[in-house]
Design a protein around this nucleic acid. Structure first.
Lengths: 118, 118
DNA sequence: ACCCTCCTTCGAACATCGTCGAATTAATGC
DNA sequence: GCATTAATTCGACGATGTTCGAAGGAGGGT
């Protein structure tokens, strides 16, 4: 497993600014819980209403706000099904993010500190 | 490689709140650049002054502020050497963080969406 | 046409963040 | 003791984020 990341090819396309945006998006307890619930929901996704119950956010407008931020950074998608909106985690995005982070820190303690370049 | 994470044992000990704090700490372009520079510096670490030049932050107080935040979340350590402070990335912390994230999203598209549990 | 549910957008209150310059502490050398 | 370099802490400013209730659009049933 984890084979799709060892190629490192996808990591190159990510810049610091975008990574920072995604980390910031995930860096709120409320949004991290939202994203986690979405990830756990898997391919099927979750309607906003169910997401609200599961995550425990009192105001619907607050949840909508956080969802919007998650969508802006490309971490979450929404699809309309009749009157309800299905929210889904975008797995490749998380995959790239993890790849970037793992690439930065070599992902284990044997990191040799390769680069001196800026 | 990446073997130290596949055990998943370390991931269990992390809670959402702490992960969110670390992600938030990394979620600022300035702090992500700082952390990146530290990671690239490797085991030797970097004095604050050199870090400032390398990252391109104008005010020393601003850098100090960001450094403090990074330290509070356990991502960075400082060690005094005479008059200069050496800053170092704490690799295991990043390792755990990446592990948590990877565990959440299964780290590749074949994620089967296992859990329905809250 | 009407209502009902689902969700978003608006407006505002309140807190937190990011940045800076000035003042402060830490450690060394003369 | 005094000056010097290194880095932090303090105080303040504007900008941004979080949260909420109220109001607004979207879609479907009767």
């Amino acid at each position: 497993m984890l084979a799709s990341r060892t190629g490192v090819g996808n990591v190159i396309s990510m810049n610091v600014e975008q990574v920072a945006k995604q980390l910031e998006a995930l860096g709120s307890p409320a949004r991290l819980r939202i994203y986690r619930a979405l990830v756990r929901a898997g391919h099927a996704g979750l309607p906003v209403r169910q997401l609200q119950e599961r995550v425990g956010i009192s105001a619907a407008s607050t949840l909508s706000h956080h969802l919007h931020r998650l969508i802006l950074t490309g971490l979450v998608s929404q699809e309309r099904q009749a009157t309800t909106l299905i929210c889904r985690a975008i797995y490749p995005a998380m995959n790239d993010l993890v790849g970037f982070l793992a690439d930065e820190c070599c992902a284990d303690e044997t990191c040799s500190g390769t680069g001196e370049a800026a």
